[in-house]
Design a protein around this nucleic acid. Structure first.
Lengths: 225, 225
DNA sequence: TACTAAAGTTTGATTACTCAAACTCATGGT
DNA sequence: ACCATGAGTTTGAGTAATCAAACTTTAGTA
């Protein structure tokens, strides 16, 4: 669009930080950390976004995207997630590497190529991590899901989304048989150790920290083993 | 590689200008024109390339890529042409638009994605314009071909390559049935008007300037009509 | 040979992004 | 109520890429 690549990255980062934050505002420090820049740099770039009516911000306060900024962020997210889907579904790359690849490609995709890609992939609604893909008009349907860490011992569930994009986390999950769409059962919970023991359907039991489990979203199944 | 996007563009431009030039040297003005920058800008960027041992240049002389620079340029060309092939073969875009799209995407493709793309496309040797795709090791096989403008009246030939990347030229050729792989016959030549009349196999006769025809490469067929 | 036009170079300024370091504000704990 | 701590901001400087305009060289022409 009219935005530079850097501006696109700021918009995406602010959008994602804002989603996480309870207040619906993105603290400057979190934005800076997400982008790997110093706080001063983030402050001055946010000024630019404000001047372009993409964000609101008052001194020493949080940052909030305007409607225009949110729209732009969703467009970037759409490009990112469609590219990820393409890399996994069409090119057969592993889901643990596609995030970083898409991070670069998302800025080089024109609306025309994006639409052709979307059509080629069959207009998917979710990317390989289970993240929803915003539609061309900016509509975004978040799926109903709860953190795996909130399941109880014996509960069964279907894995629907993985929030963590770190390569080693994703490789661990794949190696354990915990991929999007798989069903699983909580074998045991050890609150003292902060660990859950999970058995993926047809796999062997694995242990994960409840912290890690809270970044894996599931939809509970009725019935117990 | 280690190069910035701008440096990649300069390397590619110099490589292509150098191919065209008789002396095997790229004049500074041609480089600047190819990149759409002023001559002064090109001069200072070439200094950078020289400092990085990617090119050689002496004041008021031409520019010549070093082995290292040529290798890098071929790598970029490989990315460009594989992306073009992907856009046409996989996404079904028209060949008249893919050059500009690839111009942006070529800088965002990692070696890993490039190799996956190459495999997905069946390791093609030529892109949709008939341009050879450099191999991963930098090997480049130029196909044997002559400019269509050198054919005589009555000659038959197969269209193997289109050097012009301008969208309107490519749309004209496609609309005329003159695509890569098609066979054609020269119906008449009018040197005074600087025009050739061509009949593509199974199509109707079209006129093109000999200038335009010189940018279309063909392989002559034996036999006359 | 002398001069001019074309090509190339240099200089100084500008824009976008960044950092380090000095500074300012907000707040919670005793 | 104070004030230390951490979060945020400002300032000054640097890098990469660019342009316009002044300047230099080359080469062809008269």
């Amino acid at each position: 669009m009219l935005a530079t690549e850097t501006v696109e990255n700021y918009l995406k980062a602010i959008y994602l930080v804002q989603r996480e934050a309870a207040a619906g505002e993105a603290p400057m420090g979190k934005i800076a950390a997400a982008l790997g820049v110093t706080a001063g740099t983030a402050t001055s770039m946010v000024k630019k976004l404000v001047a372009a009516r993409l964000a609101r911000h008052e001194r020493f306060g949080g940052v909030r995207l305007t409607a225009k900024g949110t729209r732009a962020a969703l467009d970037i997210l759409r490009r990112h997630r469609l590219v990820e889907t393409f890399l996994v579904d069409t090119l057969g790359l592993d889901w643990s590497v596609v995030h970083d690849e898409a991070e670069r490609l998302e800025h080089a995709i024109s609306p025309m190529v994006l639409d052709a890609l979307d059509r080629h992939l069959g207009r998917p609604a979710f990317d390989p991590h289970g993240d929803p893909i915003p539609r061309a008009d900016g509509a975004l349907q978040e799926s109903e899901a709860m953190p795996m860490s909130e399941l109880g011992a014996g509960d069964g569930a279907r894995l629907v989304r993985v929030l963590d994009q770190r390569g080693d986390s994703l490789r661990f999950l794949r190696a354990s048989g915990l991929k999007v769409g798989a069903t699983l059962r909580v074998v045991a919970i050890e609150p003292g150790a902060g660990v859950m023991r999970i058995r993926p359907d047809g796999g062997t039991v694995v242990s994960m920290s409840t912290t890690a489990a809270s970044r894996v979203l599931v939809r509970p199944l009725r019935g117990r083993s």
